[in-house]
Amino acid sequence: MNRYVDEIRVIARKILEEKAVDLIIGFKEGSIPMMTEPVLIRDAAETDQLYWDSFCFMNLATYLPKREGKIGIIAKGCDSRNIAVHIVENQVKREQLYIIGVPCEGMVDRRRLCSLVGDKEVREIAESDGGITVRGEGFGHTLKKADYLQDNCIRCMHRNPVLYDAMAGDLVEERKDPDPYDDVREIEAMEWDERWEFSSTLIKDCTRCYACRNACPLCYCPTCFVDESGPQWVGKSIDPTDTMIFHILRAYHCAGRCTDCGACEQACPVGIKVRFFTRRLNRDVFDLYACEAGLSIEERPPLDTYRPDDYDEFIR
């Protein structure tokens, strides 16, 4: 992964110097390992701050809506799809953007690494081709990166950016995973009460901090429904009903638009697998409308449009 860093810096410096863009949205190294941070760079001299590793799990498209001027942005596959969604939804114009594409072989799930080392402090991460070394006081492991990917990356079908102006490396091979929704079906196979139990248990630790919402590039409304008070749609407590309504409605707002980038899940401080909700709807949209979010800057998401031949079997 680190092999992309030099290329990213070269491109970024060039476009800033040429004044092709006013700023670059990218990543810089975090203060501690596995916490690579987003950064906005306006000065060509600062482009050496730009960084790339297997922990760039945040979705930089989140920083685009309503931003003025020319913007350079680093984008992996899912980020680029969210950029496309933003363009379709009038949040940013294609002409405003210079997209530096990064081919992605998946982000590493830091939670799984941490639990592997017994939640001891990780002092250093080193990546080599396909491998990742985790070191801390009194331990060191070299692992196969592919075995520790984030769940969404394991199922990812669009590792290469779908939209870019320059690439910071050669395109990687896309996987032809025949069944990206096996997990959804597994849950669907459950009995109703079992499923209710499953989803209730899933969110029982939710503190309603809204980190999942804030990390999500799709959540750019001036006022979110959870903050509305007249009428109040959903209580602001952590009453299980309120919490469930929050998660269901949030998923509905993402239906047909979600790229399964996983930013929500990574942002969750208590580790709730919130993608459970969005993935169910992603699967429906995929099955019913043969559509995946963010693959086109021409077409609106399927639930935004009506065609006479749309699926309507749910009408009885």
Binding site: F225, W233, G235, T241, D242, I245, I248, L249, Y252
Partner: peptide
């Protein structure tokens, strides 16, 4: 709106 449905349940 989905909100109505959830609200009715609520």
């Amino acid at each position: 709106s989905p909100k109505f449905i959830l609200s009715a349940f609520m």
